[in-house]
Design a protein around this nucleic acid. Structure first.
Length: 417
RNA sequence: GUGGGCGUAGCUCAAUAGGUAGAGCUCCAGAUUGUGAUUCUGGCUGUCGUGGGUUCGAUUCCCAUCGCUCACCCCA
């Protein structure tokens, strides 16, 4: 039989790595909670229509990247490719947005059937922030400060840089889009194959092209700025002003266009400063989606949020610094009499603090057990043999320093850990 | 979806201008029968990704296929 392997682009997170993940998640959760954001959890599977309606029928995500299937009752379902649509669905369903403001965060696996590469996987993990019922631009600032706080806590604030742009409202964007299409059609021959295709699917994305030979034609293209209405202009100006005052470094990138259809007004990305050969440079991205809640059948309420690509963030952080090593005690038990007593002692030590206590299993002589103790990276070995047991004592051996080993009464062991 | 690179032991990687493979780490045992981490000695492990072709003979050459990986597309 052929070996069963993990599905392409989906990865196991093994013990050492899983410690880093838990630590990273906890750091993000902590900052989010300090800003008053509360966790929301929603299913991994939703009706496929949820995503085609919110993300946009003609986006790559919906057209060719969703994991779609029909369940046993004939419903068209999808593995969630992102969290915002799910969050809004859950919020509407439970009345969270009815004359209320909400500050929410979520995290978990997302699924997109893309060709995997560094920093991009088919099952990947996002941490997302969502704020509902806030017009901005003050909430825009809050989210950027929140993100910056996360980078600081993780020690990666010098690795990323904030890029912002505004997409205006939907009408002005449509007007702009039309002009842009006309402009690029006049320069059709200059465009590469990808951009010629984008002209049909998502013309704004041409502005974001990586092809250097298109730089000239892109730079000469009409700017969305000149199509902004007064509200959008004022929103953006205020935000810029507040960013200046708050001392957040940013770069205005007029070519920054998000891939999902639902964005309006402010959009932003935190991108990796030094690429280090990594093609995927956006580690966190988001923006306003002020019409989305209403579009999905809720009461009209403004919204803004961002999502962090956890795998990409993990590439930036110094993993070793994420975790604090707990004190580890290895309990050596010699003989059948000793093992039950050892388990009992171990439990007392665990109850008294955060110590990790490993009890030797699989037998073995003293040498073997001490070797295992060493391999387990334990700080202390406790030796419970027949001699100690007879005296009601236990031997303490320090494995990482020169303190001499000593024998103490079992009842007093906790004082020595 | 398109293109490049790579598939050899649990891990990291050698080798063979075609003659069925080795090192380090890990693991196990002993030197050291109640004292680990150092040192020394010995030992275990491979359908050389899979299928086919050429050949007396293929891990090596050719074709296909699968997998991994990187880049493009797209995106977090």
């Amino acid at each position: 039989m052929k070996d069963i392997r993990a599905i392409r682009g989906m990865h196991d997170i093994l013990p050492r790595e899983s410690n880093y993940w838990t630590a990273l998640e906890n750091k993000l959760f902590r900052v989010a909670r300090q800003y008053g954001y509360q966790e929301i959890r929603f299913p991994v599977v939703e009706y496929a229509e949820l995503f085609s309606r919110s993300i946009g029928e003609n986006t790559d995500i919906v057209e060719k990247e969703m994991y779609l299937f029909t369940d046993r009752s004939g419903d068209r379902l999808a593995l969630r490719p992102e969290g915002t649509a799910c969050c809004i669905r859950a919020g509407i369903e439970h009345g969270l947005f009815y004359n209320q403001i909400q500050r929410l965060f979520y995290h978990g696996p997302m699924f997109r059937h893309e060709r995997p590469q560094r920093g991009r996987y088919r099952q990947f993990h996002q941490f997302g922030i969502e704020a509902y019922g806030f017009m901005g631009p003050d909430i825009d600032l809050e989210l950027m400060l929140l993100a910056q706080k996360m980078w600081q806590d993780l020690g990666v604030d010098h690795e990323v840089v904030l890029q912002i742009n505004t997409l205006g409202n939907i009408e002005s964007r449509l007007k702009y889009r039309q002009c842009l299409v006309e402009y690029f059609q006049r320069n059709y021959d200059v465009l590469d194959e990808d951009s010629q295709r984008r002209l049909q699917s998502n013309p704004l994305r041409i502005l974001d092209s990586k092809n250097p030979s298109l730089r000239e034609v892109i730079n000469a293209a009409p700017r969305l700025f000149s199509y902004l209405d007064e509200t959008a202009q004022r929103h953006f100006d205020k935000l810029i002003n507040m960013l200046e005052q708050a001392g957040i470094a940013y770069v205005i990138n007029p070519n920054l266009v998000r891939g999902l259809d639902y964005y309006n007004l402010t959009v932003f990305e935190w991108v990796i400063r030094e690429q280090n050969g990594l093609a995927q440079n956006a580690v966190c991205a988001g923006g306003h989606y002020d019409t989305l809640v209403a579009d999905m059948g809720g009461k009209a309420i403004p919204a803004i949020g961002f999502a962090i690509g956890m795998e990409r963030l993990m590439l930036l952080v110094a993993k070793e610094l994420l975790t604090v090593k707990a004190k580890v005690v290895y309990l050596v038990a010699l003989g059948e009499q000793a093992i039950v007593t050892a388990m009992h002692i171990a439990d007392r030590i665990r109850t008294s603090g955060d110590t990790v206590v490993l009890v030797n299993c699989n037998g073995g002589n003293l040498g073997v057990q001490l070797k295992r103790a060493d391999r387990s990276e334990a700080d202390i070995a406790l030796i419970l043999g027949t001699e100690e047991l007879a005296k009601g004592e236990i031997m303490i051996k320090y494995l990482r320093d020169d303190r001499p080993q000593l024998s103490v009464k079992i009842d007093n062991i906790i004082d020595f850990i």
